[in-house]
């Protein structure tokens, strides 16, 4: 939401916070959904698709709440779908890491792991926040996220400590993706919790799993950022044009 004279500043921040959470879950879900029917093993095709469904479910909960906030503040008629399908690249507030192409299984796994560990810590904090609705959604979602952490940790270890080839692929994935993790901990005016406070716990968990996976945590990496403020990679535009095509082509239609 752009700042609007009619909405109070605090409501505007609350809306943006909720949209950030929704966009992050949706865009990662949209990326992961590309694995459905194309996974490396049937059982894992099912597993990553479970995670996809969880993320889309979370996104829906956050969007529905955002729509309520917007509609209460302004005389509008937003829905989960108008927010997901009719906003533009610059309005999306997801982390950059979510919109990166899937790459191979190592990249997908690593991204899921780095993100899910962050998301679990974030949800722990959100549960305790004073926004009752966000707290409730976080409480519901954290059960799913704990599973995502477990599943992706196991895969990071398996690939890191598997074959030479899988280890090399994990190292390449770390090279590609690590620079997008800094954004998790950059505070923004709409943050309802202090995201800087979860960084050390996050790093502790990453270190623990990487050690078991015989992988190293990079040092002194330059960190990319911008997603939370709507400054994205070039990938997002293509993702959105594909995802939004029917809603854009047939305005006002019900599906």
């Amino acid at each position: 939401m752009d700042s609007n004279q009619q909405i109070s500043k605090s409501t505007n921040l609350q809306i943006n916070q909720t949209l950030h959470l929704a966009d992050t879950a949706l865009i990662l879900g949209q990326r992961n959904s590309d694995w459905c029917a194309h996974g490396p093993i049937l059982e894992q095709d099912i597993a990553i698709t479970n995670i996809t469904l969880d993320l889309i479910g979370q996104a829906r909960n956050f969007y529905q709440y955002a729509a309520t906030l917007i509609n209460n503040a302004e005389n509008k008629n937003e829905t989960e779908d108008s927010l997901a399908y009719l906003r533009n690249e610059r309005e999306f507030k997801n982390f950059l890491i979510c919109e990166l192409p899937n790459g191979n299984w190592a990249q997908t796994i690593l991204r899921q792991f780095l993100f899910s560990v962050y998301q679990e810590l974030l949800f722990e904090k959100l549960i305790a926040c004073n926004d009752q609705q966000l707290s409730a959604i976080a409480a519901k979602s954290i059960k799913e996220t704990k599973y995502h952490v477990k599943w992706s940790s196991e895969w990071v270890i398996r690939l890191g400590d598997g074959t030479e080839e899988s280890k090399t692929k994990m190292e390449q994935a770390i090279d590609e993706i690590w620079m997008y993790t800094g954004e998790f901990f950059i505070a923004n005016d709409y943050d309802i919790i202090d995201v800087t406070s979860i960084k050390s716990k996050w790093l502790e968990k990453i270190n623990e799993i990487f050690e078991e996976a015989t992988l190293s945590v990079p040092e002194n990496t330059f960190m990319q950022s911008g997603g939370k403020n709507g400054i994205h990679t070039e990938y997002l535009g293509f993702l959105l044009s594909e995802m939004q095509v029917l809603q854009r082509t047939y305005p006002g239609a019900n599906w």
């Binding site: 299984w105 398996r158 598997g162 074959t163 899988s166």
Partner: peptide, 11 residues
Amino acid sequence: GEWVRAAALAF
């Protein structure tokens, strides 16, 4: 998926 399955097996 070949390298993934190989890695899972090796692990």
